[in-house]
Design a protein around this nucleic acid. Sequence first.
DNA 1: TTAAGTGCAAATTATTTGCAGTAAG
DNA 2: CTTACTGCAAATAATTTGCACTTAA
Lengths: 141, 141
Amino acid sequence: MEAAKRRGAAWLEAGGVRATRQRVALAALLVGDGEHRHVTAESLFETARAHGEKVSLATIYNTLRAFTEAGILREITVDGGKSHFDTDTSNHAHFYWEDTGELADVRERAAAGDVEVRNLPAPPEGARIAGVDVVIRLRRA
Amino acid sequence: MEAAKRRGAAWLEAGGVRATRQRVALAALLVGDGEHRHVTAESLFETARAHGEKVSLATIYNTLRAFTEAGILREITVDGGKSHFDTDTSNHAHFYWEDTGELADVRERAAAGDVEVRNLPAPPEGARIAGVDVVIRLRRA
DNA sequence: TTAAGTGCAAATTATTTGCAGTAAG
DNA sequence: CTTACTGCAAATAATTTGCACTTAA
């Protein structure tokens, strides 16, 4: 419990965001166990309530956005309205289940190594590449 | 003008969707010139109005969805609420301008060839890969 | 103390839907 | 004919915002 909060606080500090009561609670839920995870505003809201944390949905939205802007969360865009956020901010591919809307990391690596994007084009004049999103859409067989 | 309609009609037929007046008009705008293009519901609506076509926004939405389900359009998901649709249904990478929300094909190929995703993982048990989306997010330098 | 964060509820934005009328096969 | 499509307006879903209040630094 305490380890989770400590980890969360360190994470907040890394992002240079103010450590309020609700942010510390959310941070603990997000990175408290050292595992990476994917959340949506709604899912994090449920989790928070389940843990007895008193945080409004609006604050969850504001907070997820603040964390993303601070660079400690990464927004993953897939179909289906909802925004997903990933505690792993490094470039990595995702599986997306089209039927349930669930998002999962591509953990298992193929025989030859990690998923990688080859032959990335040069960015157009006056632009830089902010990131590369790779989403593998899955359908039940 | 006629060539555009002919092309549009053929395209509709390829998808096996009913050729109504508004669909033929939209198809002509989408693929009439043989070029691929990206549209949003809103942008297609504007284009249609600009060409004097009488089509409601709701129908644009329904139609884009119908075309996508028929496999003659591909939905591209990027940040920012709006859904984009691409007349090029093949797997190909996109540039996404974060500031304007514009979408562009990666046309220019790097020295070594086309953009490609290497070491694609095997899909989880009971799933098949429905598609792979590669979005290169661009920020003004 | 003071700028930033929080929580409502109301507002926005993108998209879908119910249903009566219209048209394609 | 008959089923699918169209258009409007109303409904929904996700997210944002205005504003008075609280709190971290």
